[in-house]
Design a protein around this nucleic acid. Structure first.
Lengths: 114, 114
DNA sequence: CCATTATTTCCATATTCGTTGAAATATGGA
DNA sequence: TCCATATTTCAACGAATATGGAAATAATGG
């Protein structure tokens, strides 16, 4: 991950409402969540929300897809993990000293294993 | 860690020069680094640097101490680790799914173990 | 005390950011 | 087609941010 990408991702998360949005998406898992549902959950104006979604998307932290009239946003866990890796990669005098926290979303509809 | 603290910390890291400064401090380890040395390493004006140091300090990501004429800045690893924990704590449907990356700086002058 | 070094403080400025209101666009249903 | 729903686009605004120059403060050495 380039430094500039890290800065963009950090900036995307460095705002109250956006951090709320992202955490909500993270909890929603890979299926994502409709813009309207997020707007209601966080009590945000739809146009404001679009602005924040754009930031998250530009930072690679979220994806969108249309589903009927709704836009479904979902967190991009891969970017999040890459960012964590970047932040820790130089944390011990140049050599990585800790396993980057890997964030694997629990499947919503998973076959219950055994 | 409160959400507001996380936002402050993320904002502190979400800037090119400041991320450079922090990464340099991280590599410098617990002994820290003089403001002047950082200014030279990153080619930043001293007043600009003071501005950025303040942000890092307010975010709990750095400490200062005076040493003669120099001000020695050092990274606060604990805050960094807390932030990483915060970012991953809700990453799997509400339950932590990964060990937060722990960043323990290698001691500069350690007794070489055995 | 004076000069030098190291850093901070203060003021000004251009840029970016977050929010709002109004209007536009897209989809689905009667 | 007309209407309601869902979301985006656009223009505007105050607030915060990052940087630069000049002056102030702190510590050291002669």
């Amino acid at each position: 991950m380039e430094k500039t990408d890290a800065v963009t991702a950090l900036a995307a998360l460095a705002q109250d409402n956006r951090l709320d949005v992202f955490r909500l998406l993270v909890q929603a898992g890979p299926d994502g969540m409709a813009a309207g549902a997020i707007a209601e959950a966080l009590d945000l104006a739809p146009n404001t929300l679009t602005f924040h979604f754009d930031r998250l998307r530009m930072a690679g932290l979220a994806t969108v897809r249309r589903e009927g009239r709704s836009m479904i946003y979902a967190a991009r866990f891969e970017t999040m993990n890459t960012l964590l890796g970047f932040l820790t990669e130089n944390c011990c005098g140049g050599t990585s000293c800790a396993p980057a926290a890997a964030c694997k979303p629990a499947r919503k509809r998973s076959k219950i294993p055994a």
